[in-house]
Design a protein around this nucleic acid. Structure first.
Lengths: 247, 247
DNA sequence: GGGTGAGATAGTGTCGACACCGTTGCATTG
DNA sequence: CAATGCAACGGTGTCGACACTATCTCACCC
């Protein structure tokens, strides 16, 4: 999985194709990728003057790109204040995972109902490739394959509204998940989860599939929280980079 | 419920307070209210030149307001094409209600878990007022009270992510619901649903509350679909104003 | 007469400018 | 020395202008 692919995935998750000018898309992809990869850290200033200089454009397309990322929860904008990289609180993260868990359970149920055998075979192929990546410890490739897998599932289910919401929640968790997947052992747990989920789908057991994906989500959340905890203690007494009190 | 109140509700649903300049907020509220009230009909041209003339501003804040409404699904924008009032297909509507049903069930479960007795009393008062409005046949007031009731419930549950998604879905269904609630008998059915839901909450029966709200959502969807069908046949042979083939 | 294409029309995307406001650093005061 | 006020700086929101392009109109052709 190259940088090029990263941008292609982001282009789809942000629904940039045909919806925005290439210039805006380019900026949104660069900033979005930066946030997810951790190149831009939470709370960091994203003022439109600097960005417009970097891309050698005026501030108008920069503002538009930032507004796109704001709606996906990656950027925080308040009127007359400088935009910043979003810094979700622990509570925010829990809320997001709670909703995500619920919607993924719904997705699994629909997948069991609607996926054709051919589509399940395709998903099976994907998971097998992910198993390989996990065994090789190729975190980055695994990470994006995971994103692609869920994207493909939402496509198969064919509810664009659901897909859009799940994509948005996925983006919010992506910066966190990138951390959490690097935790020792997470990769193999994760791929186990995917295999069990797919098996339940093949057996057309909607209840089980929903329960499995919900469980996997809870485990992902736990891994994220542990990683945050660890980061916090490693960073000194400063507990967690938290939202400003001024809010 | 006056026009003033309508705009206040929209201001909250669109999260305009502190997030956008008053000028942008004003435009977004006017257009949003117009779409919901049916003053602007589905598919109608929303070019930024006309709007900027109407509000005596430049096109910049107009574009920003339209982007806000696009993310809420009220407006469709494609690059280099004129923005239009969204025209969801029947399938889109079904998809939206499907997701909404699921999330409202989640909301009901959380409400049972988390609402204090005082908060339930407050909700009870609201529903009683709605009963009165329904008996009086005051469709508009009932309509907005209904919106407020659900907004309050999401606040009580205290999951901002969930609230934001439900608000967005609510906006999408609002233009439809306005139609559907005018159908004879819908008002009293609707208020019955709300009363049963609240009773289940008071009895702390999460399963029942979830089932009730899901059922109510399905009934609301059915009413919308019947109304659309009726409009379509009344409008001649042209079946349903559908999305352009050009997409 | 219906389809085709060139020209006219009109709206979008982007730009640089400017007024206004949030922020920062410093001097002043208790 | 900490707190407060002020002034310079820097960024945001809005504007009008302009190039580019989707759309409309109408003459032209078969």
């Amino acid at each position: 999985m190259t940088d090029q692919d990263t941008h292609l995935v982001l282009e789809r998750l942000l629904r940039l194709r045909d919806r925005r000018e290439p210039l805006v898309a380019q900026i949104a992809e660069w900033v979005g990728a930066g946030i997810i990869e951790g190149r831009l850290e939470a709370g960091q200033d994203l003022n439109s003057v600097d960005l417009s200089r970097r891309f050698d454009t005026s501030r108008t397309p920069v503002r538009e790109a930032l507004m796109l990322l704001e709606q996906e929860g990656l950027v925080e904008m308040k009127a007359r204040r400088r935009p910043r990289v979003a810094a979700p609180s622990l509570q925010d993260i829990r809320d997001i995972y709670q909703v995500r868990k619920n919607l993924l359970a719904m997705l699994a149920g629909l997948l069991v109902e609607r996926a054709s055998d051919e589509e399940l075979t395709e998903l099976r192929t994907r998971v097998e490739r992910m198993r390989k990546l996990a065994d090789d410890g190729d975190v980055d490739s695994y990470f994006w394959s995971h994103v692609l897998l869920q994207e493909r599932m939402t496509e198969i289910v064919g509810n664009p509204t659901l897909k859009q919401i799940l994509d948005s929640l996925a983006l919010r968790t992506l910066m966190l998940r990138h951390l959490s997947l690097t935790r020792a052992g997470r990769l193999s747990y994760s791929v186990d989860d995917q295999e069990r989920l797919l098996q339940a789908c093949e057996e057309r057991d909607g209840e089980l599939a929903s329960a499995l994906i919900a469980g996997a989500t809870v485990r992902a959340q736990r891994a994220v929280e542990e990683q945050l905890e660890q980061d916090a203690t490693a960073r000194g007494r400063k507990p967690v980079r938290r939202r400003r009190a001024a809010d």
